[in-house]
Design a protein around this nucleic acid. Structure first.
Lengths: 267, 267
DNA sequence: AGTATCTGTCTTGTATAGAGTACATGTGTC
DNA sequence: GACACATGTACTCTATACAAGACAGATACT
C-alpha cells in the first residue's frame, strides 16, 4: 500500500482535530477519533494504518487499541491484525435503542412506510450538528436509492435538514453549516439566505419537499417528528423518483405527516 | 461516602476495578467503567451519582461526561441532569452489525426460530469471558421467559455456556468461571469437574440440553455455530417449558442444529 | 432565617500517561 | 543476501490530565 490515502476521509468535523498539531493529546480524544474514523471508513483497518489515519503516534495507538479490544469496544478482525468495532458497542447501541422510545418506534414506522409505499424510507436526526440517517429501509424498486445508516450528509442537501433546523437562531444555523455544505454534489451553490428562508417556510408548512438536490433523479419528502411543541427531534422521509406525479406526491406527504404526528410527543 | 450503595452493581468483572484504590486512574479506563455501569443499570443517572457509582472524583467525572456528551457517546436524558447512552453508540453498534455477517444472519435466524416454534429463542456469544445474550426474540407463550439482550449470565448456568467453551484448555475455563458462577440461583452448587465433563460431551454431541438450571420451569436447548472447524463462535438456543415432551424436544433440537449448521462457516 | 445537600465550574500541584525512540521479528522484493 | 518496510513490544522523559478542594448558585427541609 504505497499511497495509503485510499482511506482518506473527512474526519475534521465534530471533533476539531489538528489544532496545534505537535502537541500531546488526551487518550480519550484519540479514542473518540479512532471510533469516528472507523465509522467513516466502515471497514477493519490495521493498527499502523489507524495510527496514520488519526495522526497519532504508533506506540500510543497500540496501547489504546489494546485497551479498547480488552474492553470489547473493538475487536481484532478475522484475518489477523486489523481492528473494527466490537460486540460491546453493539450491546451499548441496543441499550440506547431500548432507552429511547422515539428511536424504537421510529424504526418501526420507517419499516412500515417503506413496505407499504415500496419507496425508500428513512429516519433522520441531528447528530452533533450534522444531519444523520439513523435508520433506513430500502424500498422495493429495482434500482433503489441506497443510503447507509449512520451516513452524515450536509444539512442543506436534504429536505429533512430544513425541518430539523426549524426554530434555531440564525447564528446557530450559520455555525452548523459550512461553506462547503452549501455546494451541492453537482457543483451548484445554494445561498445561505435561501436556505434559511426554506427552513422557515418548511417549519410553518409542517413538511418539506426537495427535488434533485443530492442527485438529479430523486425527490425527497420529509415530515417533522416533535419531542415537544416546536422542538423537532427527528424527521421521517421518503425518497421517490423525481417524476412522481403531483397527486401521488401529495398522497405520500399526507401519509408521512400522519405517521410523523403519531410519532411525536405532543406535550 | 458511607452508604451510596443503592446503585451498587457488579462492575468488578471485565475490568479489574479497585486495584490500589486511592491511586490516580487513566481517563479512558474511567470512561470504560462509566459505559459498563450504564449498561449494567440500564437507566439514566445523575453525574454526581455516576461519580459515586464508579468511585471516581466528581470533578473528573464532570469533564469526562462532558467529553462523551460532546462526542455523542452519551446524551443528557430528557428530564435534566442525567446521562445515558447516546446516538453515536447506536450508530457504532449498527456498524458492528453490518460488518459482522454472523451476527446479522444469526439475528434473522433467531427471529425466524421464535416465530416458527413460538418459543423464546436467543443468539449467544462469549463476551470478554462471559456468556452474553446477543439477541433474543420473545416467543408467543402467555407467560414468556424474558431475558434482555446484553444480559450476562454465569457460563455454568446455561446450555450455551457448555457449548461455547468447547475446545478450551481446562486452565482457561477455570479462569473464566468463578466460584460464585458455580452456585445456581436456587443455591445448588455445581462441581467444576462435572461442568468440564459436560463441556466435553456437549461438544462431541453437537448440542446441549439443560433442565431447570436457572429456574425450575424451563429447559434450555442449544446448538453451536462454528466460525471455523472446531471453533464455536456462538450458539443459538431455545427456552422451552421443562415438561416439553421428549419427542417434541428432539424435533426442536434437530431444527436448532440444522439452523446452527446453516449459520456456521464451514471452512 | 439557618442548615444541609445537591449541581456545575474553576484553579492548582503532581503523579503519570503519552510521545519519542529503539529493537526484535516477520514479510516481500530485487 | 541485502534492503525496505511492515508489526508488536519495551524503554525512558516530561508535558499535562487527573485529583482535590474551594466556590457560587439551587433546592429542600426545619
Amino acid at each position: 500500500m504505497q499511497d495509503g490515502n485510499a482511506l482518506a476521509v473527512r474526519l475534521d468535523d465534530g471533533l476539531d482535530e489538528d489544532k496545534a498539531s505537535g502537541s500531546r493529546e488526551k487518550g480519550l480524544n484519540r479514542v473518540l477519533q479512532i471510533l469516528e474514523f472507523l465509522h467513516a471508513t466502515q471497514r477493519a483497518i490495521g493498527i499502523g494504518d489507524l495510527a496514520k489515519a488519526v495522526s497519532a503516534p504508533r506506540s500510543t495507538t497500540y496501547t489504546l487499541v489494546r485497551s479498547l479490544v480488552d474492553a470489547g469496544l473493538l475487536e481484532m478482525a478475522g484475518d489477523g491484525n486489523r481492528v473494527y468495532f466490537g460486540k460491546k458497542l453493539y450491546l451499548y447501541g441496543m441499550d440506547y435503542v431500548r432507552g429511547n422510545d422515539l428511536l424504537r418506534r421510529g424504526r418501526q414506522e420507517v419499516d412500515n412506510l417503506s413496505r407499504e409505499t415500496g419507496e425508500t424510507s428513512e429516519l433522520c436526526m441531528l447528530q452533533s450538528g450534522r444531519y444523520t440517517i439513523v435508520h433506513s429501509s430500502p424500498g422495493t424498486r429495482p434500482f433503489r436509492i441506497s443510503s447507509a445508516t449512520g451516513l452524515q450528509i450536509p444539512l442543506p442537501w436534504t429536505a429533512s435538514g430544513r425541518l430539523l433546523l426549524a426554530g434555531f437562531e440564525r447564528a446557530v444555523i450559520e455555525d452548523m453549516v459550512s461553506e462547503d455544505d452549501l455546494v451541492l454534489p453537482d457543483g451548484r451553490r445554494l445561498l445561505l439566505d435561501d436556505f434559511i428562508a426554506d427552513i422557515a417556510t418548511s417549519g410553518a408548512a409542517g413538511y418539506c419537499v426537495t427535488s434533485g438536490l443530492v442527485d438529479a433523479y430523486t425527490k425527497c419528502l420529509a415530515a417533522p417528528v416533535f419531542s415537544a411543541p416546536g422542538k423537532v427531534e427527528a424527521t421521517i422521509c421518503l425518497v421517490v423518483p423525481i417524476d412522481t406525479s403531483g397527486e401521488k406526491t401529495d398522497d405520500l406527504i399526507a401519509m408521512l405527516r400522519e405517521r410523523a404526528a403519531r410519532l411525536s410527543i405532543t406535550g
